[in-house]
Simulated assay, not measured.
Amino acid sequence: MKLHQDVQFKTQAKNNEWEQLKQFTDARIALGRVGGSLPTRPALAFQLAHAQAKDAVLKVLDLDGIQAQLAVLQHEVLRIESCAVDKAQYLQRPDWGRELSEASRQQLKDYVRQHKEAYDVVIIAGDGLSARAIEDNAPYFIQQLYKACIAQGWRVAPLILATGSRVALGDEAAQILQAKMLVMLIGERPGLSSPDSMGIYYTWQAHVGCSDAMRNCISNVRPAGLSIQVALQRLTALMKKSAELGLSGVQLKDEHEMAAVTDQLQRPKQLF
């Protein structure tokens, strides 16, 4: 048997030639190497990012904290839940996350019976696959969206916080409340560099059985992604056009030209 000598690598850390490109992306490039392995720092950073993504999925939404931040609007807040009563069911049965629990369905029906009002907009924030994304981004976004809706003369239904939620959960809620426009805020599936990414789904005359083709999506809303100010501009432009044409989804194109957003317009850090 012929023996081959093991390949020997130099022990000192070697930087990657793409090092200068790291400032332009969160992607894991130019990590360097020590011998045939990753340096300790990027190896530990990967483990931390994986743990943050996992925590974002399993975290229980802080309903009290969000509701306290929304109190400044002096607008009623309701809490609903899906048929997925815990995280295990939510992950194993996606269909249960799209359906209101019987108690929540009855709660909304009772509310409509007691408050015979017509609504233009219903805003729902659901935990989805990242409760952290909703806790970090939704309260301030809802405050700004609510003000924009009032400025347009739109009647806003009670603000709704949902747990165990998939995107389609909002359809039945909007149908029961008979709201023309549904804005569904939901925590997106966390990547290894984005555990705090919030998605926005807009639907005109949402109802049970809506297909994804009937929705408009604005994704990656977070400090390191699409800013709240830009997302709000895009959403309100879509809503205005939707109200004018009476449609949404693939038939409604995002043709809004956004003004530049300066550092002064970024979300005040002291709010969170």
Rank of each mutant, 00 (worst) to 15 (best):
S104Y: 10
H75K: 11
A88N: 14
Q92P: 02
Q67T: 13
R41M: 00
K54M: 14
E17C: 11
F46T: 02
V72M: 06
P94M: 09
A53L: 09
V57P: 00
G65Y: 04
L108D: 02
S82G: 01
D120V: 03
A103C: 03
L70Y: 07
E102V: 14
S101C: 02
W96Y: 15
A53N: 03
E19D: 15
E76V: 10
V57K: 15
R105K: 10
L61N: 01
S82Y: 02
G36T: 05
D55V: 09
L61C: 06
Q69V: 11
A71V: 08
R41H: 07
D62R: 12
D64L: 08
H50I: 14
K109D: 05
A30N: 09
L31F: 03
K22N: 09
L73P: 04
W96R: 06
H115M: 02
R98I: 11
V72C: 08
A43P: 02
P39D: 07
I29D: 03
G65W: 05
L31E: 13
G36A: 09
K59S: 03
K59F: 00
P94K: 01
A84V: 11
Y119D: 01
A84W: 13
R41A: 14
V60T: 15
T40C: 06
V57F: 02
A30I: 09
W96T: 00
Q47V: 02
D26M: 06
A56Q: 03
E117V: 13
Y111F: 12
A43D: 07
Q47Y: 07
V121R: 10
A45H: 07
A56T: 07
F46W: 04
Q106M: 14
L31P: 01
A27M: 13
W18K: 13
A56L: 04
H75A: 07
R41L: 14
A84Q: 08
E99Y: 01
V60P: 07
R28D: 08
Q114F: 00
T25L: 08
Q74C: 06
L48W: 15
Q107K: 14
S37V: 09
E17T: 11
D110G: 00
Q23H: 11
Q89R: 10
E99I: 09
V57W: 07
E19I: 12
E17I: 08
K116T: 11
H115W: 01
E76P: 11
G35V: 06
V60K: 12
T25R: 05
E117Q: 15
L63G: 03
R93K: 04
K116C: 12
G32C: 03
Y119P: 01
R79I: 14
S37H: 09
D26G: 00
Q107D: 04
E99M: 13
D55G: 01
A53M: 08
K109F: 10
L91D: 05
C83Y: 12
K54A: 13
V112N: 12
A56K: 01
I66Q: 00
P39S: 03
A103Y: 01
A53D: 00
V77C: 14
N16T: 15
